[in-house]
Lab assay of single mutants.
Amino acid sequence: MKVIFLKDVKGKGKKGEIKNVADGYANNFLFKQGLAIEATPANLKALE
């Protein structure tokens, strides 16, 4: 799953980066902790 990092995550990505991560990692950790959002077309456009 492609995500946009909202904060730096050690060993995974930095704020503003768009990366592929495992679905479970994104859903169970990144999204719940507010560290990333899904890289949907709307979210990508808002990032610009």
Rank of each mutant, 00 (worst) to 15 (best):
residue 1 M to C: 12
residue 1 M to S: 06
residue 1 M to P: 04
residue 1 M to F: 09
residue 1 M to R: 09
residue 1 M to H: 04
residue 1 M to T: 14
residue 1 M to E: 02
residue 1 M to Y: 08
residue 1 M to G: 02
residue 1 M to K: 11
residue 1 M to N: 03
residue 1 M to A: 05
residue 2 K to P: 06
residue 2 K to L: 14
residue 2 K to Q: 11
residue 2 K to V: 13
residue 2 K to F: 13
residue 2 K to D: 10
residue 2 K to T: 13
residue 2 K to M: 15
residue 2 K to I: 13
residue 2 K to Y: 14
residue 2 K to W: 15
residue 2 K to G: 06
residue 3 V to S: 01
residue 3 V to H: 00
residue 3 V to T: 00
residue 3 V to W: 00
residue 3 V to E: 00
residue 3 V to K: 09
residue 3 V to G: 01
residue 3 V to M: 01
residue 4 I to K: 03
residue 4 I to M: 07
residue 4 I to R: 02
residue 4 I to W: 00
residue 4 I to Y: 06
residue 4 I to Q: 02
residue 4 I to V: 10
residue 4 I to D: 01
residue 4 I to E: 01
residue 4 I to C: 06
residue 5 F to I: 02
residue 5 F to L: 07
residue 5 F to V: 00
residue 5 F to M: 04
residue 5 F to S: 00
residue 5 F to N: 01
residue 5 F to G: 00
residue 5 F to T: 02
residue 5 F to K: 00
residue 5 F to R: 00
residue 5 F to H: 01
residue 5 F to A: 00
residue 5 F to W: 01
residue 6 L to T: 05
residue 6 L to R: 01
residue 6 L to C: 10
residue 6 L to Q: 02
residue 6 L to F: 03
residue 6 L to Y: 00
residue 6 L to V: 09
residue 6 L to D: 01
residue 6 L to P: 01
residue 7 K to I: 11
residue 7 K to R: 14
residue 7 K to P: 01
residue 7 K to V: 14
residue 7 K to H: 11
residue 7 K to G: 06
residue 7 K to S: 11
residue 7 K to A: 12
residue 7 K to D: 07
residue 7 K to C: 14
residue 7 K to L: 09
residue 7 K to T: 13
residue 8 D to Q: 03
residue 8 D to W: 06
residue 8 D to C: 06
residue 8 D to K: 04
residue 8 D to S: 09
residue 8 D to L: 02
residue 8 D to T: 10
residue 9 V to R: 00
residue 9 V to T: 03
residue 9 V to E: 01
residue 9 V to L: 06
residue 9 V to Q: 01
residue 9 V to A: 03
residue 9 V to P: 00
residue 9 V to K: 00
residue 9 V to D: 01
residue 9 V to I: 09
residue 9 V to N: 00
residue 10 K to R: 11
residue 10 K to D: 12
residue 10 K to H: 12
residue 10 K to S: 09
residue 10 K to W: 13
residue 10 K to Q: 12
residue 10 K to V: 12
residue 10 K to F: 13
residue 10 K to E: 14
residue 11 G to D: 08
residue 11 G to S: 06
residue 11 G to P: 03
residue 11 G to Q: 04
residue 11 G to F: 06
residue 11 G to H: 07
residue 11 G to Y: 07
residue 11 G to V: 01
residue 11 G to N: 09
residue 11 G to A: 04
residue 12 K to R: 12
residue 12 K to P: 01
residue 12 K to F: 15
residue 12 K to Y: 15
residue 12 K to E: 13
residue 13 G to N: 02
residue 13 G to H: 10
residue 13 G to R: 00
residue 13 G to S: 05
residue 13 G to T: 02
residue 13 G to D: 02
residue 13 G to M: 03
residue 13 G to L: 02
residue 13 G to Y: 13
residue 13 G to W: 11
residue 14 K to Q: 10
residue 14 K to G: 05
residue 14 K to C: 14
residue 14 K to A: 10
residue 14 K to T: 09
residue 14 K to D: 05
residue 14 K to V: 09
residue 14 K to S: 08
residue 15 K to M: 11
residue 15 K to R: 12
residue 15 K to Y: 05
residue 15 K to Q: 11
residue 15 K to F: 06
residue 15 K to A: 13
residue 15 K to C: 11
residue 16 G to K: 01
residue 16 G to A: 03
residue 16 G to L: 05
residue 16 G to Q: 02
residue 16 G to S: 04
residue 16 G to T: 02
residue 16 G to M: 06
residue 16 G to C: 10
residue 16 G to P: 01
residue 17 E to F: 03
residue 17 E to L: 02
residue 17 E to Y: 02
residue 17 E to T: 06
residue 17 E to H: 04
residue 17 E to M: 06
residue 17 E to S: 05
residue 17 E to N: 04
residue 17 E to G: 01
residue 17 E to I: 02
residue 17 E to R: 02
residue 18 I to A: 03
residue 18 I to P: 01
residue 18 I to M: 07
residue 18 I to S: 03
residue 18 I to H: 03
residue 18 I to C: 11
residue 18 I to R: 01
residue 18 I to Q: 04
residue 18 I to Y: 02
residue 18 I to K: 03
residue 18 I to W: 02
residue 19 K to W: 08
residue 19 K to S: 08
residue 19 K to L: 10
residue 19 K to E: 04
residue 19 K to Q: 09
residue 19 K to Y: 07
residue 19 K to I: 12
residue 19 K to H: 11
residue 19 K to A: 12
residue 19 K to M: 11
residue 20 N to G: 06
residue 20 N to A: 13
residue 20 N to S: 12
residue 20 N to P: 08
residue 20 N to K: 13
residue 20 N to T: 14
residue 20 N to L: 15
residue 20 N to W: 15
residue 21 V to K: 00
residue 21 V to T: 02
residue 21 V to F: 09
residue 21 V to W: 02
residue 21 V to C: 07
residue 22 A to H: 13
residue 22 A to I: 08
residue 22 A to M: 12
residue 22 A to S: 14
residue 22 A to G: 11
residue 22 A to R: 11
residue 22 A to Q: 12
residue 22 A to P: 15
residue 22 A to E: 15
residue 22 A to T: 13
residue 22 A to N: 14
residue 23 D to M: 15
residue 23 D to T: 15
residue 23 D to W: 15
residue 23 D to P: 15
residue 23 D to R: 14
residue 23 D to K: 15
residue 23 D to V: 15
residue 23 D to A: 15
residue 23 D to L: 15
residue 24 G to L: 11
residue 24 G to C: 13
residue 24 G to R: 11
residue 24 G to K: 11
residue 24 G to F: 12
residue 24 G to A: 14
residue 24 G to I: 12
residue 24 G to P: 07
residue 24 G to N: 14
residue 25 Y to C: 09
residue 25 Y to L: 08
residue 25 Y to A: 05
residue 25 Y to Q: 04
residue 25 Y to T: 05
residue 25 Y to H: 04
residue 25 Y to V: 08
residue 25 Y to I: 08
residue 25 Y to F: 12
residue 25 Y to E: 09
residue 25 Y to P: 06
residue 25 Y to R: 05
residue 25 Y to K: 05
residue 25 Y to N: 04
residue 26 A to R: 03
residue 26 A to S: 03
residue 26 A to G: 06
residue 26 A to F: 14
residue 26 A to V: 05
residue 26 A to E: 08
residue 26 A to Q: 05
residue 26 A to Y: 11
residue 26 A to K: 03
residue 27 N to S: 10
residue 27 N to Y: 14
residue 27 N to M: 15
residue 27 N to C: 14
residue 27 N to F: 14
residue 27 N to Q: 14
residue 27 N to R: 15
residue 27 N to E: 14
residue 27 N to W: 14
residue 28 N to C: 12
residue 28 N to W: 07
residue 28 N to Y: 09
residue 28 N to P: 01
residue 28 N to K: 10
residue 28 N to G: 10
residue 28 N to D: 15
residue 28 N to L: 09
residue 29 F to I: 14
residue 29 F to Y: 13
residue 29 F to T: 09
residue 29 F to M: 07
residue 29 F to H: 11
residue 29 F to S: 06
residue 30 L to A: 02
residue 30 L to E: 04
residue 30 L to R: 00
residue 30 L to D: 04
residue 30 L to T: 00
residue 30 L to F: 03
residue 30 L to G: 02
residue 30 L to I: 03
residue 31 F to A: 05
residue 31 F to D: 06
residue 31 F to Q: 05
residue 31 F to W: 03
residue 31 F to M: 06
residue 31 F to R: 03
residue 31 F to E: 06
residue 31 F to I: 14
residue 32 K to S: 13
residue 32 K to D: 12
residue 32 K to V: 14
residue 32 K to W: 09
residue 32 K to N: 12
residue 32 K to E: 13
residue 32 K to F: 10
residue 32 K to Q: 12
residue 32 K to R: 10
residue 33 Q to I: 07
residue 33 Q to F: 15
residue 33 Q to N: 14
residue 33 Q to K: 13
residue 33 Q to A: 11
residue 33 Q to C: 15
residue 33 Q to L: 14
residue 33 Q to H: 15
residue 33 Q to P: 00
residue 33 Q to S: 09
residue 33 Q to T: 11
residue 33 Q to E: 14
residue 34 G to Q: 07
residue 34 G to Y: 07
residue 34 G to S: 06
residue 34 G to M: 09
residue 34 G to N: 08
residue 34 G to T: 02
residue 34 G to P: 00
residue 34 G to L: 06
residue 34 G to K: 10
residue 34 G to V: 03
residue 35 L to R: 01
residue 35 L to C: 06
residue 35 L to F: 10
residue 35 L to A: 05
residue 35 L to N: 02
residue 35 L to W: 09
residue 35 L to G: 01
residue 35 L to I: 08
residue 35 L to K: 03
residue 35 L to Y: 11
residue 35 L to T: 03
residue 36 A to L: 02
residue 36 A to V: 08
residue 36 A to P: 00
residue 36 A to N: 00
residue 36 A to R: 00
residue 36 A to Y: 01
residue 36 A to E: 01
residue 36 A to T: 01
residue 36 A to H: 00
residue 36 A to S: 01
residue 37 I to V: 13
residue 37 I to Q: 05
residue 37 I to R: 05
residue 37 I to T: 05
residue 37 I to N: 01
residue 37 I to G: 01
residue 37 I to L: 11
residue 37 I to W: 05
residue 37 I to E: 04
residue 37 I to D: 02
residue 37 I to Y: 04
residue 37 I to S: 03
residue 38 E to T: 06
residue 38 E to G: 04
residue 38 E to M: 10
residue 38 E to C: 08
residue 38 E to V: 08
residue 38 E to Y: 04
residue 38 E to A: 12
residue 38 E to D: 04
residue 39 A to C: 08
residue 39 A to P: 03
residue 39 A to D: 01
residue 39 A to K: 00
residue 39 A to G: 03
residue 39 A to E: 02
residue 39 A to W: 11
residue 39 A to L: 06
residue 39 A to H: 05
residue 39 A to S: 04
residue 39 A to V: 06
residue 39 A to T: 01
residue 40 T to C: 07
residue 40 T to A: 03
residue 40 T to G: 04
residue 40 T to Q: 04
residue 40 T to F: 04
residue 40 T to R: 03
residue 40 T to V: 04
residue 40 T to M: 03
residue 41 P to H: 10
residue 41 P to C: 12
residue 41 P to S: 10
residue 41 P to G: 07
residue 41 P to L: 11
residue 41 P to A: 12
residue 41 P to D: 13
residue 41 P to Y: 09
residue 41 P to M: 10
residue 41 P to W: 08
residue 42 A to E: 14
residue 42 A to D: 13
residue 42 A to S: 11
residue 42 A to C: 10
residue 42 A to H: 10
residue 42 A to Q: 12
residue 42 A to Y: 08
residue 43 N to D: 05
residue 43 N to R: 08
residue 43 N to K: 05
residue 43 N to V: 08
residue 43 N to E: 05
residue 43 N to M: 08
residue 43 N to Q: 06
residue 43 N to L: 09
residue 43 N to S: 08
residue 43 N to A: 11
residue 43 N to T: 07
residue 44 L to E: 05
residue 44 L to R: 07
residue 44 L to Y: 01
residue 44 L to V: 12
residue 44 L to M: 10
residue 44 L to P: 03
residue 44 L to C: 12
residue 45 K to I: 12
residue 45 K to E: 12
residue 45 K to G: 09
residue 45 K to H: 13
residue 45 K to D: 09
residue 45 K to F: 08
residue 45 K to N: 11
residue 45 K to C: 10
residue 45 K to L: 13
residue 45 K to Q: 10
residue 46 A to P: 05
residue 46 A to W: 14
residue 46 A to F: 13
residue 46 A to N: 11
residue 46 A to K: 13
residue 46 A to D: 11
residue 46 A to C: 14
residue 47 L to K: 06
residue 47 L to D: 03
residue 47 L to H: 10
residue 47 L to W: 14
residue 47 L to T: 07
residue 47 L to F: 14
residue 47 L to M: 12
residue 47 L to N: 08
residue 47 L to P: 05
residue 47 L to E: 05
residue 47 L to G: 05
residue 48 E to A: 14
residue 48 E to L: 13
residue 48 E to M: 13
residue 48 E to N: 11
residue 48 E to V: 14
residue 48 E to R: 12
residue 48 E to T: 10
residue 48 E to H: 12
